[in-house]
Write a protein that binds this DNA or RNA. Structure first.
Length: 311
DNA sequence: AAGACGAAAGTGGTTGA
DNA sequence: TCAACAACTTTCGTCTT
C-alpha cells in the first residue's frame, strides 16, 4: 500500500522509466503507458505463481511497445500457436520450427497475462470479490489465453467474462451490469464473451440462483436479517412452484425481497429495490404479482398491516 | 405528491426452420 | 441466416395512499 515501496520496474514491459505523478497519485510507465496503481506491490505476490518459469527473461526485455501494438501482435501469434496442434503429427520438421515459435511467444503470453491479471485484480477489488473468485477467474483467463480465445476480443472483455464466469461458479453472483460498470466493457459484450469462453472451455455453470443475490441486495437496502431469510424462504417456495425458470434471477430476487420487506413491515419502495437489483419496477411488479397469486402471501401482508394498526 | 399499478410499444437475445 | 418468440425495459396514463 505505501508508496515508498513502489515498484521499480514496469510489470508489463520491464522498463525502468517509471514516472510518479504525485498529484494524481498514480505511477505511469513512460515506455508502454501502463498506469501502475499503488496496490501494485500486492500484485507482485500473485504474479509470481504465474511467472515462475521464466521470470528472469522478462526482467530485461525493455522494448518499448504501445499498448495496442502489443495486443494486436499477440493476437496473431496466438493464432499460429493454435494451428500448431493440427500439424504436429504429420510434419516433424515443421513441428520443431513451430515449437521454437511457441517457445518464443510464450513470453508474450506471459506478458499479456501480467497485464490482464492486473486488470482483473483491479476490477475484482472494485467489486469486493473474495479471493477464491479472483483466483478462479485468473485461472479461467489463463486457460482462455492458452487456447487462443482472446483473438478478436479485447483483453479487458475477456477479463470481464472470466470474472463473471468465476462469480457464477462460486455462487457469489454479480449482475452483468456491475461487471460492466466496473470493467468499462459494454454489458452485451461481457455477456457474449462470457458465453463464448464458457462454451469453448467447457465450463459448466449452474443457472444462477436468485437466493444468492439476496444478502447483497438486502444489505444495500439495509434490511434486517429476518427479512433476508424470509425472502429466501419465499424464493424457495417460488422455485417449488416453478415460478422461477426462464425468468431473470435478479428480478425474482428483487421481488422476493420486496415482498419480504412488506411482510416484515420494513417497506421499501419498488424503485429502491429496483435500483439495487438492477431491474425495473415493472419487472418487480410482474414477479411480485406472480408471487402473490401462487403463494398466497396476501394473508401475511394483511396480518402485518393489522399488527401495525394496533400499535 | 409520491408510490403503485398496468397497458402498449420497443429492445436485444435465443431458438428453430 | 432469418423470423418468431419470450423476457425485460421504457414510457406513460391512471389509481391509491
Amino acid at each position: 500500500m505505501s508508496t515508498d515501496t513502489y515498484v521499480k520496474k514496469c510489470p508489463e514491459c520491464g522498463g525502468i522509466n517509471l514516472f510518479w505523478n504525485k498529484d494524481k497519485g498514480e505511477i505511469v510507465c513512460r515506455d508502454c503507458g501502463l498506469v501502475v496503481e499503488e496496490k501494485m506491490v500486492d500484485f507482485n505476490q500473485e504474479w509470481r505463481e504465474f511467472d515462475s518459469t521464466d521470470a528472469e527473461k522478462r526482467r530485461r526485455t525493455g522494448a518499448p511497445m504501445t499498448y495496442t501494438q502489443y495486443d494486436q501482435g499477440l493476437g496473431t501469434e496466438i493464432g499460429r500457436k493454435a494451428d500448431l496442434y493440427g500439424l504436429d503429427s504429420r510434419d516433424k520438421s515443421k513441428f520443431f520450427r513451430l515449437r521454437k515459435w511457441q517457445y518464443r511467444i510464450s513470453t508474450a503470453i506471459e506478458r499479456n497475462l501480467k497485464l490482464a491479471l492486473a486488470e482483473l485484480k483491479r476490477v475484482s477489488s472494485y467489486l469486493k470479490l473474495p479471493k477464491s473468485v479472483e483466483e478462479e477467474s485468473a485461472r479461467i483467463y489463463t486457460l482462455a489465453v492458452q487456447r487462443g480465445l482472446v483473438r478478436g476480443r479485447s483483453m479487458e472483455s475477456v477479463v470481464a467474462g472470466a470474472l463473471y464466469a468465476a462469480c457464477r461458479r462460486h455462487e457469489v453472483p454479480r449482475t452483468l451490469d456491475e461487471i460492466s460498470e466496473s470493467s468499462g466493457i459494454e454489458k452485451k459484450e461481457v455477456g457474449r464473451t462470457y458465453r463464448f469462453i464458457t462454451r469453448e472451455l467447457g465450463i459448466s455453470i449452474m443457472p444462477s440462483n436468485p437466493a444468492d443475490y439476496i444478502p447483497r441486495f438486502a444489505s444495500a437496502l439495509k434490511l434486517s436479517p429476518e427479512t433476508q431469510s424470509k425472502s429466501i424462504e419465499i424464493i424457495e417456495a417460488a422455485q417449488d412452484k416453478e415460478l422461477t425458470s426462464g425468468r431473470g434471477p435478479t428480478g425474482i430476487a428483487a421481488a422476493g425481497l420486496y415482498v419480504a420487506a412488506l411482510i416484515n413491515g420494513e417497506k421499501r419502495t419498488q424503485r429502491e429495490v429496483a435500483d439495487v437489483a438492477g431491474v425495473t419496477e415493472v419487472t418487480i411488479r410482474n414477479r411480485y404479482k406472480e408471487l402473490l397469486d401462487k403463494l398466497d402471501l396476501e394473508k401475511e401482508i394483511k396480518k402485518n398491516k393489522k399488527k401495525k394498526k394496533e400499535d
